[in-house]
Amino acid sequence: MSHDEISFHLPPPATAIPAPPPQPAPTMVPLTIDGRAIEVAAGSTLIDACKTLDITIPTLCYLETLTPVNACRVCVVEVEGARVLAPACSRQVEAGMVVQSRSARVDLSRKVVLELLGSSVDLSTAPGLSEMMAEYGARPERFQEVIGSASAVSSVAKPIKIDNDLYVRDYGKCVLCYKCVEACGTDAQHTFAIAVAGRGFNAHISTELDVPLPDSACVYCGNCIAVCPTGALMATPEFELRKAGEWRPETQAVTDTICPYCDVGCTLTVHVQDQQIVKVTSPFDNDVTRGNLCVKGRFGFEYVNK
């Protein structure tokens, strides 16, 4: 009997994964903010630069994960030598810039912008806005006081849209920050179900031909809800609880977990109030999701509650 020699080969020694080519050190750009000299990487925005100095700039339409649209203008800062103020969220640093994050002009613009919003939009569910208003001394009532009658002060109030089971659209609370459009479009979802329609004061977020959501291209990923800064877009459970006066964020337990549905393994942040899941989000700084989820992860929690 002869045995064929059983040969056993060791796997070849691992070849080293080639290291990525060394990144050229970013060119550093010197500038001055509020009298303090700093250097930041070229291509940074003024808001990045302010962050390194622990200067907070108020923002509404800005989010790290989205392309800046610089539409709300609450983030304006004064750049020496420029005719007008610059939006810190999108203006890139230039060598030798001299920037003031709080000058009289900056404060006036921020105050008036907040007053314009406050007098035309329902900001009651916008987190952090009343603090911002107080900080800049914004008094939206001024317009009504001067113009006289409340009816002569136009607002964007309109009926709430409840046309599906998963989320509610109350565009009377919309500040037209474009975030939801970006989240639905090229910045996350690539569904393009919503866009800005109309013009001027009549500009608004709309589906194609203004059809109800179920007839549109919407896939209910809810990524627009996650980015909306004012609560104009709100998941139905939160909407119902708020209506009943039972929405109590301070009592909610917030836990991170992994979505059970598919192999992507998105990180879910589960908000629990009275033993019930009331909302699901995902951290914006998470590498997998960047804050985005799909319909199952975001809304598929009914079975847990039962």
Binding site: A71, L116, F143, V146, L176, G198, G200
Partner: peptide
């Protein structure tokens, strides 16, 4: 007004009202 930015979108309305 194109309606993109707040100072102009709402500001031009308030200016007319005033």
């Amino acid at each position: 007004s194109c309606g993109q930015c707040v100072p102009c979108r709402v500001g031009t309305v308030r200016q007319e009202e005033l």
